[in-house]
Structures are given as structure tokens and as C-alpha cells.
């Protein structure tokens, strides 16, 4: 997992609970990296799982809620860091479709070792998009946070229905209906 996810995660935790919480998470867990992350580095996905689960316990918050909040938070980082991707799409549907076809292609060029989730999209009529998330990481809630923020960005509204195709969450359908 790319280092930016960890640094942004700590950023979010610090903003919400202060650096003490960040320090607690590092001190209380056995992290191979020792809690030292740099945006351009690559670290084990397991460390993120450990951190999120521990944060849930410490703050008495369910993990899905945390992941969704983290997705919404990270959207802001992406919005600031990569405005060209957002300009390239005229609306939310176009943008969501461009993730697999365009954005992830570009990411792979820059970080050949990046492990990205896969998306497939299909339009049903003019106002409905069927988007399926595929990933062994089972972080569909994180993706949902990003999707929700996308509609905010384009100042559009949508009702998003989530349905697990595979029980462990490695394949999840989002039925997105514009309002």
C-alpha cells in the first residue's frame, strides 16, 4: 500500500484526536515499519488493517464507519493534488467511469508496484450507473466514501445502494441513481 494512504490516515487521526492518538496507535501496535511512513514509500496493507482496527477500538467506532470517513477525507487530498483528473470529466458519472479507464492507468505508469482495486461500470438508462468494486482488501466502504465525495465535488446528488456480491466484501455492487 502506498505511503500516502498511511500519512493521510495519520493526518486525519491527528486532526480528529490529536497527535497523542497517532502516537498511541504506533506505540500500541507491532508495526514492521515502526510507524514511520513517507508518501512515496510502499508498506504492508496489514499495517493499515491493524491501525484501523485499533483506532476503532480506541474510539469505540465501527471499522466501516472509519473507512468511509477515511475515504471522504482522502478525496480532499486527491482533489488538491490531482485537479487535472477532475477537470477531465464533465460530471460524476464520467469521472467514476474514468477511474478504471484513465486514472488507474496513469497511476500504474508512475507506480508500477501499486496494487489498485478494479472497477467495472455500466450505465442503465440516463441516470443510473452500476459500479462494481473488486479487491482482496475488501475496502468497499473506503471506496464508498470516495464515491460520495465525488458527487459533492460535481455538485450532484445521488442515491447509492450497496450490495455485496461476494460475502467477504471482495466484490461489491454500487447501484448509483442520480437525483
Amino acid at each position: 500500500m502506498k505511503g500516502i494512504v498511511f500519512t493521510e490516515f495519520f493526518e486525519m487521526v491527528e486532526q480528529a484526536h490529536g497527535y497523542e492518538m497517532v502516537d498511541q496507535l504506533i506505540m500500541d501496535n507491532e508495526l514492521p515499519s515502526g510507524g514511520v511512513y513517507t508518501t512515496i514509500g510502499t508498506y504492508s496493507h496489514q499495517e493499515m488493517v491493524t491501525l484501523v482496527v485499533d483506532l476503532g477500538e480506541k474510539t469505540k467506532t465501527p471499522v466501516p464507519t472509519l473507512l468511509n470517513a477515511f475515504g471522504q477525507y482522502l478525496f480532499g487530498t486527491f482533489e488538491k493534488g490531482y485537479p487535472m483528473f477532475f477537470k477531465a470529466a464533465a460530471n460524476a458519472f464520467d469521472f467514476l467511469e474514468s477511474i478504471e479507464k484513465y486514472i488507474h492507468v496513469e497511476v500504474k505508469k508512475l507506480y508500477p508496484d501499486a496494487q489498485l482495486p478494479r472497477f467495472s461500470t455500466k450505465r442503465i438508462g440516463t441516470d443510473t450507473l452500476e459500479m462494481i468494486y473488486y479487491s482482496d482488501r475488501s475496502m468497499a466502504d473506503f471506496a464508498l466514501g470516495l464515491i460520495e465525495k465525488t458527487f459533492e465535488h460535481y455538485q450532484e446528488k445521488a442515491i447509492i445502494t450497496r450490495k455485496d456480491i461476494v460475502k467477504n466484501g471482495s466484490e461489491v455492487l454500487f447501484l448509483i441513481k442520480k437525483v
Binding site: 497527535y19 497517532v22 502516537d23 504506533i26 514511520v36 514509500g41
Partner: peptide, 21 residues
């Protein structure tokens, strides 16, 4: 102590970044 640890972590992260670069 937290601050010290934070500074140490930041320095190590910087070094790591430099070596990656």
C-alpha cells in the same frame, strides 16, 4: 516524549524518502 518520538519519526521518514528518491 511524544514530541521527541514524533520528531524522530519525521526524521526517519525524511531519510527513507531521501533514500527512495
Amino acid at each position: 516524549n511524544i514530541l521527541k518520538r514524533r520528531i524522530l519519526r519525521e526524521r526517519m521518514a525524511r531519510k527513507e524518502a531521501e533514500s527512495i528518491l
